[in-house]
Simulated assay, not measured.
Amino acid sequence: MTVYAYVDGPLGEMLLVGEEYADGRTVLASLSLPGQKGAAVVREGWRHAPGAFEGIAAQLRSYFTGGLTRFDLTYADAGTDFQRRVWRAVDDIPYGATVTYGEIAARVGAPGAGVRAVGTAIGRNPLLVVRPCHRVIGADGALRGYAAGLERKERLLGLEGALVR
């Protein structure tokens, strides 16, 4: 069953959506921020279940207060094969570090023209904050693209103490 909850945070009220299983597990499918491009929208038939996301909410609170540097959660493995490869590369970017779109393209075997495809895949990341696409920057060191806005990307990088080149 699809479940959802809202969690307050310094970037606004986050919407968490997931699948709840009979064994009590909840697998996170989406984390969106207010005003985000392509944000999830609560649908009829979904169940409001804040308790299903207590662990994730606690990790988010700890991250936003500087106590957590890597999320430990189960999330849905949606997306195309290419998107999943890009997202795994993004998952591997350490807290407080940044890499370029070109570096991600090279890591997934798509250098050169693949940079644009990498940017598209990153732009379709359904798990903002927990999958750290905010750590990917332009080749010139400038902040580029973030579905929830560049101001939020800058705030997340600032929270992590990441030096933007």
Rank of each mutant, 00 (worst) to 15 (best):
V136Q: 11
S30C: 00
V3I: 04
L15Q: 05
L68D: 12
E44I: 05
V90G: 07
V3A: 05
G67A: 11
G12V: 04
C133S: 12
L127S: 00
D72P: 00
L127T: 00
T80S: 15
V86S: 10
E54T: 04
G138K: 15
T80P: 06
R124W: 01
A58F: 04
A52S: 15
L128C: 02
S32K: 02
T69W: 02
G79F: 05
F82E: 01
W46K: 12
V136E: 09
V99A: 15
V118T: 06
A139Q: 14
T2M: 15
Y63K: 04
S30F: 01
D81T: 07
T26K: 04
R107V: 02
V41F: 00
R47H: 11
Y75F: 03
G18V: 07
G38Q: 03
Q59Y: 14
A142H: 08
R144S: 07
R152S: 14
R43K: 14
F82T: 04
G141N: 13
V86P: 09
I93Y: 04
E103L: 01
A106D: 13
G102T: 11
D81E: 14
G38I: 00
T65M: 01
G145L: 07
G158P: 07
A49Y: 12
S30G: 07
V7A: 15
I93D: 06
G24I: 14
P126S: 03
A139K: 13
I93Q: 04
G66R: 07
G109W: 01
A139P: 13
K153H: 15
D23N: 15
V41S: 06
V129D: 10
Y6R: 15
V129S: 07
A49Q: 13
T74V: 07
R25L: 11
G67I: 13
